[in-house]
């Protein structure tokens, strides 16, 4: 899988949504992206990219788009 595919996959599997919906998601924008869903997404991203996110980045990851910016800090382009 490409990084883009891995990134989308983390959202679609965590929140059980389609690709197009995943790209529009924001924290607490759907019932599945609550605080429990959020920590599950963090785990999925850390596993997919073999990284450990900084605690500040965990809280900053407020949308699909914001996640791209955060991963760039770890030299991961999606």
């Amino acid at each position: 899988m490409t990084n883009e595919e891995k990134y989308i996959h983390a959202f679609t599997t965590t929140f059980e949504v389609g690709e197009e919906e995943a790209k529009t998601l924001q924290f607490q924008g759907i019932p599945a992206w609550d605080s429990v869903g959020h920590v599950s997404l963090i785990a999925a991203l850390e596993e997919a990219f073999d990284i450990v996110l900084d605690p500040d980045d965990i809280l900053d990851l407020s949308s699909f788009e914001k996640g791209r910016e955060i991963l760039a800090k770890y030299n991961i382009t999606v």
């Binding site: 920590v39 605690p55 965990i58 809280l59």
Partner: peptide
């Protein structure tokens, strides 16, 4: 505040 506690714990 669950996420703040999560951040604290992992930090």
């Amino acid at each position: 505040k669950g996420l703040d506690v999560f951040k604290f714990a992992t930090e």
